[in-house]
Simulated scan of single mutants.
Amino acid sequence: MEGIEHKMVSVNGINMHVAEKGKGPVVLFLHGFPELWYTWRHQILAFAALGYRAVAPDLRGFGDTDAPSSITSYTCLHVVGDMVALIGSLGVDQVFLVAHDWGALVGWYLCMFRPDLIKAFVSLTVPFRPRHPTLKPIESVRALFGDEYYMCRFQEPGKMESEIAEYGAATVIKKILTGRKPGPPILPKQNPFGNFHDTDDIKLPTWFSKEDLKYYTNKYNHKGFTGGLNYYRALDLNWELTAAWTGVQVKIPVKFVVGDLDMVYTTPGMKEYVHGGGFRKDVPLLKECVVIQGAGHFINQERAEEVNAHIHDFIKEFLIV
């Protein structure tokens, strides 16, 4: 990770760790769960070499960024507030936004609340999710996928943390990152991450080294998983807070990239939304939806060069020469 600079920035009442490299137009990279700024290591180096300033924070609750204890400190308003302050600290009026997983959800909120700050958005794996006018998110997914759907299992404070602790951070991270089972993610109440005696046999994929796993494990052993899990626990509160944005379109130029084996993309109803006109109706400036064959959820790491090319081909259209 040669040449990547690390600093702490005061944003929205917390201290945020930021990794960055390069000079030029800013590309802001937002990670998901259970990840860190480190998920963007390939992108930071590539885009710095292409003449951009690549910036990747640890979101609140993750890595070396502060982790407030209250669930109510993890709403979309808090996290978008962090990003607005971070962009302001960079000394620029607008950024290119690239985001994955939970970071993409934060990205959609950022585009919805502060479109003036975003030149263009590349969303990886998570399309826009319009607010349902009457159904809260957790009751909705529980009705569709049952109590063992991962978002439902994450709701009780402390419960998932204790289950993760039984396996250990390294095993859980390895299990999540190597998982390629399509469809809605289910965490059984018994052995949610597999049989204990089998977990040592999980082989790392070629795109994720032992050194990568060690970095993640060290950070999660220090910070814990509660910050990341609190994003899921604030989903219903987000629904309440965003009532005023019901039916609002996201009017930012967008490119969507997803793997055909992705757990979100293969969840029932998602392909129909992405390709059937619903996505474009909600995001009228959606330029393209790219489906990468044979790729799973963590495409920015698994298919880094291919994803980098898709990102650059899109954002370079918006450069002012």
Rank of each mutant, 00 (worst) to 15 (best):
N195L: 15
I186K: 06
N218R: 13
N221I: 08
T226K: 11
R180V: 13
K210R: 09
K219W: 05
K189M: 10
G228D: 06
G228M: 08
E211N: 06
K219Y: 05
G194P: 04
L177W: 10
P185H: 00
Y220N: 06
L229K: 00
Q190G: 05
L213M: 10
K214N: 12
P185R: 02
Y231F: 12
H197A: 10
N230V: 04
T206N: 14
L177K: 05
H197F: 10
D200V: 11
F225K: 06
L229M: 01
E211Y: 02
G179Q: 07
D200A: 13
H197Q: 14
K189E: 15
F196A: 13
T226F: 03
P182W: 04
P185F: 01
I176H: 00
D198T: 14
D201F: 14
K203E: 13
K181G: 06
N221G: 08
W207R: 03
Y220D: 05
Y220A: 08
H197R: 14
Q190M: 10
K181V: 15
N230D: 06
T199L: 04
Y216V: 02
G227T: 07
L187T: 01
F208D: 03
W207Q: 02
T206M: 12
G228H: 05
T217S: 11
N195K: 15
W207D: 02
N221P: 08
P182G: 05
H197N: 13
Y220H: 07
I202Y: 05
K203R: 14
D201I: 10
D198S: 13
K214E: 14
D212I: 04
Y215R: 09
H222P: 00
P205Y: 03
F193R: 02
F193H: 02
H197V: 15
P185W: 00
G179P: 00
N218Y: 08
L213D: 07
H222T: 11
H222K: 15
K214G: 04
I186V: 15
W207L: 04
K181M: 07
L229G: 00
D212W: 02
P182H: 06
P184M: 04
P192R: 06
Y215K: 09
H197P: 00
L187V: 01
T206G: 13
L213I: 12
Y215H: 11
N221E: 13
P192F: 03
E211Q: 12
I176C: 01
D198H: 09
P205R: 05
I176W: 03
T217P: 11
D212P: 02
N191K: 12
G179M: 10
Y215E: 13
N191S: 13
G224F: 09
K223E: 07
N230H: 15
K210P: 01
K214Y: 02
G228K: 05
Y231M: 09
K181L: 08
R180D: 03
P188T: 00
H197K: 12
K181S: 12
G224Q: 10
Y215P: 01
E211M: 05
F196G: 04
